[in-house]
Amino acid sequence: MKISKDASRKAAEKSFSEIQQWMQHQLLHPQFAGDYEAFVKSTSKLSAKEHMRIYQRSYIARLRDCMVAQFPALSHALGRQLFLQFADLYLLEYPSKSYTLGDLGQHFGAFLEETRPDKDAEVKESWPDFMIELANFEFLVNISFDEKADENYQKATAETKEEALQLVPVFHLLKHNFPISEYYKEAVNDRNPELPFAQESYCVLLRRDYRLGLFEIYPIQYHFLAKLKETQSIAQAKQFLINQFKVVGDELENHWQQWKTKWLEEGFFVKR
């Protein structure tokens, strides 16, 4: 009798903030047994622990779902089991502080870098590099989908004067040490790609009419587009290739006409 009175007094003494800190701890660290009875009532159907367990299960399941949704290709690359192990560790290390789940994976690339198994080894393995590149790429895809940009533009056409061509506002130019964009497309379209070997690759991730597009490009095109992005001048981008890569002017003009046709179709340009 005395014991139960003490127990109920002890329970009643818990403050509002103590209760919340206890519960949050239970969600984040379900592996540590808690004093469930002191906080949670049991019912005829479930014990206090089983009631708490519903929240614990939902917490991690919801965030795992979100991680898979934000990193579908990485989840494929690592395999679901291993991906979830990484995700669980990540969520312990970087629990969400944002009001939106959109930010959930923002530190995942950094986390994989910090925890790579060969972190202190002199000779590094290459697969962690791939996973980190892929993670950073996938998060950028999420950002690009919903980032703020001026979308009130006029489409450029074959008739648009060259001086009036401008890159579409959401336009990310990317260089990778692995064929990231190819792998990503294969994975998200359920084509089951194999892990790739290291190979430099270049791509454009853009948003046009609120839809994302992903296009592989050649190194020389990467340099051209990088200069164009910097100067917003096609003439200067051309001159840069002539100076820097000793491209002959006539040849470049030929290439450029082909590039332009293709890129206009793919939505690289708007009208200034």
Binding site: Q24, L27, L28, Y55, S96, L101
Partner: peptide, 11 residues
Amino acid sequence: GVLSLNSHDLL
């Protein structure tokens, strides 16, 4: 959540 964390659940 508390202590600036968000569990993304309605607790």
